[in-house]
Design a protein around this nucleic acid. Structure first.
Lengths: 188, 188
DNA sequence: CGCCGAGTTGAACTGAATCAAGAAACGTGG
DNA sequence: CCACGTTTCTTGATTCAGTTCAACTCGGCG
């Protein structure tokens, strides 16, 4: 759990007590590549942290799959409760590499928040960081052409490109796989 | 400040002490229509709450203007600190209606968070709610056609449509004003 | 009245999606 | 280690949604 402790300390150092309480509730597991970590995020009650590996969060129905998010080492993800699901899409999480993943039940986490002020601060700061990333993504979708979005992705997540198939990246960037293939060729 | 108190109580009731501390630091002001509330959000150190009225947050440079967000009664907004600004765009906030707005310095707010655990919880929950909204927006941009995005907007923010000019809404929805005009006509 | 900004409408254009066919990389079992 | 099938990636041709440019309508207001 070294990555995890480095991660939280880089955001907001926790008291000894909070750190211990938290570690008692967190579960670490290792899964093989292609494992479906969460079949339906809308029914998920855990928050996840990636100690090592790579996951893909995606929407899918019979016809298509759309990548919603990639999370690699030090990534945090969990359910986003929506007023209504998007059409008939299911929201799932799969592993793109063998991965070691920490998780905690969100209700237990709420209890810990209640008991430890500094942990609640950590939660708030992680949420803030998430807002920051989502805003960047919106900006990218609104401002940038397909080529530019690809360049942004390259810059922000250079490692993912080698680790995830192009088709997944394309749908994450809101474009067709074919378009992505062409965008990348433009770069000499 | 009635809307404000209703708002926070609907999210997470505060202790008497936190409520008083908060109200001492918040400033209420009323501005006329078209007032530029924040000329440059990247240099802004306040968090805002709209007691009454409507604001538009937008990017602009010499060539274009793109609406980033609308906030009306009970809306919260503030600076999002970015690693780098988007090209040469400036991020500003203007009033689309005469508005009464509460605000607080973010460093003072940080101090209050430190002193009042329940306030920090409120901050976390507001952040969570923001994540929820941003995620919805991303989904809309990725999944939906121009027409569908317009319909979503109608459903989620029915009042804004009458209150903001069409061009602003179009750029918020990531489409051309002309396209929006046509999308709306399709609806009988 | 006549100007001005906001909205609508039409025609031409364009970036990206779709359809389709190959080429390359990958995995599995013999 | 090779042969086969499967998946991933590239490339070309066609189509389409949405943009751009431009003209026109409408309502408000000095």
């Amino acid at each position: 759990m070294q990555n995890f402790y480095n991660f939280i300390n880089s955001i907001c150092p926790l008291s000894e007590a909070a750190q211990i309480a938290l570690s008692h509730k967190m579960v670490q597991k290792t899964y093989p590549k292609n494992h479906i970590l969460v079949p339906d995020l809308s029914k998920c009650d855990r928050l996840y942290f990636i100690e090592k590996g790579l996951v893909r969060i995606y929407y899918h129905n019979q016809e298509r799959e759309i990548t919603d998010f990639f999370a690699a080492e030090n990534g945090v993800f969990g359910p986003i409760f929506r007023s209504k699901p998007i059409k008939d899409f299911i929201h799932s999480v799969e592993l793109l590499e063998p991965s070691t993943i920490l998780s905690i039940n969100i209700f237990e986490l709420e209890n810990l928040y209640q008991a430890h002020h500094d942990l609640e601060r950590l939660g708030r700061l992680i949420a803030l960081h998430t807002i920051f990333m989502l805003q960047q993504r919106i900006d990218s979708l609104q401002f940038a052409s397909a080529k530019e979005r690809y360049d942004d992705f390259l810059e922000n997540f250079p490692t993912i490109l080698q680790r995830a198939p192009l088709g997944h990246i394309a749908s994450y960037l809101g474009m067709n796989q074919v378009t992505l293939s062409r965008a990348r060729k433009q770069k000499h």
